[in-house]
Nucleic acid binder design. Structure first.
Length: 504
RNA sequence: GCUCCCGUGGUGUAGACCGGCCAAGCAUUCCGGCCUUUCGAGCCGGAGAACCCGGGUUCAAAUCCCGGCGGGAGCACCA
């Protein structure tokens, strides 16, 4: 049969892989949203490198900001589902909000190492000093003074904004944000409760502290993340210096732009909030979330292949739906059943025929998919079937038209709402010889079909009918609608079929 | 504005660290042919980049150096 070796690009070697006994990577999302196409790169690459080197892969939820990026309770599980869908398995799962005591412990160690101090400057005051590369008065506090203040922070003696723990760095560092960056701040969790820990904690580690500590404690060897994190690497390196730890190998890849997709969390949130009846949720097919792609029939393997191909280069890259469709088509073509969908159906009357039976394979070459049969018979004296409005002109232009898998017909009379034809035989070869167009059709008794197709911000509905066999195919299947495109069956809804369009 | 990073056909990627075999490979895209149940897949053929620009080093540069231009990221008590 058909042999198709899809060449999948291999990952380039991982820098420094040989320096570690076992390669260990992690993917560290904030559970404040579902995963988008943008998250797929760090997730897939981190996982694939762990697999390639027989290492470990860790899923770490970074949920240490209940205020400005509040985690969402459902998101933890939605992310787990998204990863599973991508085929990613993790050896260990860690949730940062459950490790608060660990961070406190290391904060105290850092204070003892004179690597951190409690600062009670106002933001404004500190910024003024920082920008002129001057230390703030708290920087010279003794260990015991700092410890006392730190304990007061933990005891809720300070309100939001009144005290932070700062990591000592280089006050002359050219990037001001790096100078004595904040490791812990106070968040009023009475007002902003954390979905997992409620109001239990008020002193919260920042990303750089929690991430830095965890990457070390979890023995991460390679950090693969987007280049927006390069300054964070610099910040965290100071932490590692204080503790005399070795910083993992960090790889920062360039931004991936996805044309044709709405990826921005904030944009999607806004659409959902402002227009809840127009948008269907995180998985609305107009969005670039993984679950939206799944709903359009995109195979996770297609995403995996694209991420591997894009790799870890530091330059930006743009991926379009065409790229994704191409990868998906290769995967789907050998296995997707072919069905006939007829947009805006027009009745065809066949004059000189009493009955005909069609047995059509569900796939031109993959015989394991089987076939379906339809018997067409005269109803009230005529034999009828349906074709698409779009194909009616073909009957004006051609002497012979082939109805795929069924028969060849010649037009007798063609109007906008009915096409009368004459049966001319069943042989494909005759049709080919005559150069007849081959079109899809639907028998009487076909189901109403609504195809929802994302076009930018519009979800276009294409109405038509689909052959009855669609009921046997089952919800969630991805099919190829002949001469139309790949699509996924969403649901059967009172005799109608709702289908989401994927790509051509 | 400051700091850092990047620049190979429409898109993605290989080659660049260790200059020559690179008038640049592969995939996708587009076009044509064959084949086919299809506007898909497969097969065959074709189009499309002188490797951002300028200069330098060299017998030799996509590959090294300098300058320019262009693009991106960061400059939070966000992650």
């Amino acid at each position: 049969m058909e042999k198709r070796e899809v060449e999948v690009k291999e990952l380039p070697p991982l820098p420094n892989a040989e320096k570690y006994k076992v390669v260990r990577t992690r993917f560290a999302p904030n559970p404040d949203f579902v995963l988008t196409l943008g998250n797929a790169r760090p997730a897939v690459l981190s996982y694939e490198y762990a697999v390639k080197y027989n290492g470990n892969f860790i899923l770490r939820f970074e949920d240490t900001d209940p205020k400005t990026k509040p985690p969402i309770l459902e998101a933890y599980n939605l992310i787990r589902e998204d990863l599973k869908w991508l085929g990613i398995k993790w050896d260990l799962e860690v949730i940062q909000s459950k490790r608060m005591e660990i961070y406190y412990e290391y904060a105290e160690k850092l204070i003892e190492l004179r690597g951190a101090y409690v600062c009670t400057c106002s933001r404004k005051e500190f910024k003024a000093l920082r920008d002129s590369m001057k230390p703030c008065p708290h920087r010279e506090h003794t260990v015991s003074e700092n410890k006392a203040l730190w304990n007061r922070m933990l005891m809720s003696d300070f309100n939001e904004g009144e005290a932070v723990l700062r990591v000592k760095t280089d006050l002359n560092h050219p990037d001001p944000s790096i100078r004595d960056w904040v490791a812990f701040r106070i968040i009023d969790t009475e007002r902003h409760p954390h979905p997992l820990t409620g109001s239990k904690y008020v002193v919260w580690p920042t990303y750089n502290f929690a991430c830095g500590i965890d990457d070390h404690l979890l023995e991460i060897t390679h950090i693969l993340r987007a280049k927006e994190h390069v300054q964070n690497t610099v910040k965290q390196t100071y932490l590692y210096k204080h503790f005399s730890w070795n910083y993992p190998t960090a790889i920062h890849f360039g931004r991936l732009k996805f044309s044709d997709f709405i990826l921005s969390k904030s944009k999607i949130r806004r659409f959902l909030e402002e227009n809840p009846q127009e948008f269907e949720g995180y998985d609305d097919v107009r969005f670039g979330t993984l679950r939206a792609l799944r709903r359009r029939g995109i195979q996770p393997e297609a995403i995996r292949q694209i991420m591997i191909e894009v790799g870890i280069k530091p330059s930006e890259a743009t991926i379009s739906m065409k790229n994704i469709a191409a990868a998906n088509r290769k995967l789907l073509d050998p296995i997707a059943p072919r069905l006939m969908f007829v947009e805006s159906p027009v009745k065809v009357l066949v004059k000189n025929l009493d009955s005909i039976r069609a047995n059509i394979p569900l796939h031109p070459s993959n015989t394991s998919l089987g076939s379906r049969s339809y018997v067409l018979e005269k109803i009230n004296g005529t034999l009828e079937l349906y074709i698409s409005f779009n194909d009616v002109p073909l009957f004006k232009e051609n002497k012979l038209v082939r109805l795929m898998g069924l028969m060849n017909v010649a037009p007798i009379r063609v109007s906008e709402d009915v096409v009368v034809v004459e049966f001319k035989g069943v042989d494909v070869h005759e049709a080919r010889k005559a150069g007849a167009p081959i079109i899809q059709w639907c028998p009487p008794g076909s189901l109403k079909a609504i195809i929802k197709k994302p076009e930018g911000l519009v979800l276009r509905e294409i109405n038509g009918i689909i052959e009855p066999y669609v009921e046997k195919i089952g919800v969630d299947s991805v099919v190829q609608l002949i001469r139309f495109g790949f699509a996924r069956i969403e649901k059967y809804d009172n005799g109608a079929v709702i289908i989401y369009y994927g790509h051509n």
